[in-house]
Nucleic acid binder design. Structure first.
Lengths: 230, 230
DNA sequence: TACGCTTGCCAACAAGCGTTGACCAACATG
DNA sequence: CATGTTGGTCAACGCTTGTTGGCAAGCGTA
């Protein structure tokens, strides 16, 4: 019984056209054309240029709250308060909560170029990079926090994995066909350490220094990347 | 009439989480005269025997919903509906949502006795056991889902780690002082694979057979358990 | 029969949620 | 000046949440 299917109520991914009012805005998360929802009566056809400043402030606040509280506990009101504006502005700029989340969870792993790294240093290089990336801001922690409870978040993580992790490793994988498998194994160790260290705060995982984490995990990553298939 | 006791805090982790297990009694400090029905102080002599059947039904439903939806999306109403009783019964039996969660998250990892396992088979044995444990029911998946977003859940996971994982590994660890560190490393890999495989559903992690997971992870676990410190 | 205790349902409460529409201050342009 | 667009606030809506108090039915005992 592998799959705990829980595609239930408040799921920003399954924004089916059932709700006609929010469908248009939700499908256009970025600064795309929002049609009838926000410009109901005017037939001017003018594209309203919106204030980029508050828009960015909302996005920053949303990232912060989603990362700290997860999807359902991060309320629109709290995000608006942190951004210093009215909750209704959030709706006007991003349509609805799902649209805001879609925009806020657009993340960049910034995976490094590994093609010129000596092959026996790949593990250490990868571990150190992700360590720094995880601690640079709360984006990764937040994405994981949301990815675990919310299906749209999990989908985002799969997308990041497929588009940002896998290609980088595929470039240095001896057999490209095995890149997906090896990437999955590496992700399991890297995400697992991040989970224990940054989210669950399991004491021994928190106590490790950067160098210790690298010393322990790098051989594992190295083996997942280069060892023969079983 | 107004209830100021919990007006500010809807978070089960906000109050001192040490007494989370007795949240029902702990959450009613002073003005809770209404607890005459729900909080029988054991000094009375006769402990009111409550219907164990519905009590168990509630607990089973709660485990199910918490595991599937996480703490905040699992509503009392949904749990009661699944248990086939009225929502108010949940309150009468478990005090409040935090108390119900405390009772529902009382889990057993059933870590195996490793003292008679050959030392070079420890890794494989551990991986295989946890694989089966994770797939036997949704308890572990649910605990992780809750542990990531809710601080009370994270505390539960730390407790399980300290009381059920660490002792077992400490018994087979050559140097007992290193057991905590080595347990943390092992947890990072085991939980990481579980996260990718059962929660995030990252394709290559899902595609692996049991034997493949064991073949890949066992050497890692073995090394974390027995390798010299860096 | 009447009582007390337990078990349960019902209806309601206050609070908080996402979301909406009316209204207002600028301000550039006819 | 008048006017229309833009960025923003305010108050409310419908709904769901956790939670509570009152009341009805079962039942062993006096």
């Amino acid at each position: 019984m592998p799959d705990p299917a829980h595609a239930t109520s408040t799921d920003p991914a399954s924004d089916t056209p059932a709700d006609a009012t929010t469908a248009a805005a939700a499908s256009a998360p970025a600064d795309a054309a929002d049609t009838a929802a926000t410009a109901p009566r005017e037939a001017g056809g003018t594209r309203p240029p919106r204030s980029a400043a508050t828009r960015a402030a909302i996005l920053a606040a949303a990232r912060d709250r989603f990362a700290a509280d997860g999807y359902e506990r991060a309320t629109i009101r709290a995000i608006a308060k942190e951004a210093g504006i009215d909750p209704s502005m959030v709706m006007r700029y991003y349509g609805n909560k799902a649209g805001l989340f879609a925009a806020a969870s657009e993340i960049e792993v910034h995976a490094p170029d590994l093609t010129h790294v000596p092959h026996d240093e790949l593990g250490a290089r990868l571990v150190r990079h992700f360590l720094e990336r995880w601690e640079s801001d709360e984006t990764m922690t937040g994405m994981m926090r949301v990815g675990v409870t919310n299906d749209a978040g999990a989908q985002r993580m799969r997308k990041v994995f497929a588009e940002q992790i896998e290609p980088v490793l595929s470039a240095v994988c001896p057999v490209p066909e095995e890149a997906e498998l090896r990437s999955g194994l590496i992700a399991s160790q890297v995400l697992g350490m991040a989970l224990c260290r940054y989210v669950l705060h399991i004491p021994p995982a928190v106590a490790l220094s950067h160098d210790e984490v690298v010393a322990w995990l790098a051989p594992t990553i190295q083996r997942y990347l280069t060892a023969d298939l079983p």
